[in-house]
Design a protein around this nucleic acid. Structure first.
Length: 171
DNA sequence: CGATTTTGACCGGCGC
DNA sequence: GCGCCGGTCAAAATCG
């Protein structure tokens, strides 16, 4: 098992990224009770205590709050809701905003971010909950192929196996 | 001075 | 076919 260390309080988003990286391509549903499937994520959830993961599936998943079905296949997508004052939850990755759109369902605009690292096509969608403005809905799409510059990975004991990488190679 | 944000335009899918 | 809707592009502006 690997641990993560972060100086930020927004560990949930980062943990979700970790979960994405470790369990990429594996379809599974996430509930609050299923968080034990993800070691790092479960730690973060215990720390946060308020975050409510909504769903996580690889394909044919549904977006929170709407009956819309995703048609893209093979892309791991996670949507969850977090109580936060700020829209941009820094998860340790470098995100570059590439679009802003207001959706019809919600009066709040939706921001589109992309991982600025070359070769990493992970996308992120941040939207504030229209019903509860104190909540932020974050959607990750894709898998990182590099380590986060803001996260330090620690091994409990001298981890010798070089194969146990947290980075998900090809999906 | 390079990277990133901003913001309207553009485009593709889908429903009517 | 057209228009709505969601997603992306790209050029100018801005930031560090």
């Amino acid at each position: 098992m690997a641990y993560f260390h972060s100086q930020r309080s927004n560990d949930l988003a980062m943990a979700m990224s970790l979960a994405l990286g470790r369990h990429s391509g594996r379809p599974m549903a996430l509930n609050a009770s299923d968080c034990t499937l993800f070691d790092e994520a479960s730690v973060a959830w215990q720390l946060e205590g308020r975050a409510v993961p909504l769903m996580a599936r690889d394909s044919s998943s549904r977006i929170y709050g709407s009956g819309m079905q995703t048609r893209k296949e093979g892309v791991f997508r996670v949507a969850f809701r977090t109580k936060s004052e700020i829209d941009i939850l820094d998860d340790g990755f470098k995100w570059r905003k590439y679009g802003k759109k207001s959706v019809k369902n919600s009066p709040n605009p939706r921001n589109y971010y992309r991982c600025s690292t070359e070769g990493c096509g992970v996308k992120k969608r941040v939207e504030r909950d229209g019903e509860d403005p104190s909540y932020v809905i974050t959607t990750y799409e894709g898998v990182h192929n590099h380590t986060s510059p803001g996260v330090m990975y620690l091994a409990p004991d001298g981890c010798d196996s070089g194969g146990g990488s947290l980075v998900a190679g090809g999906f």
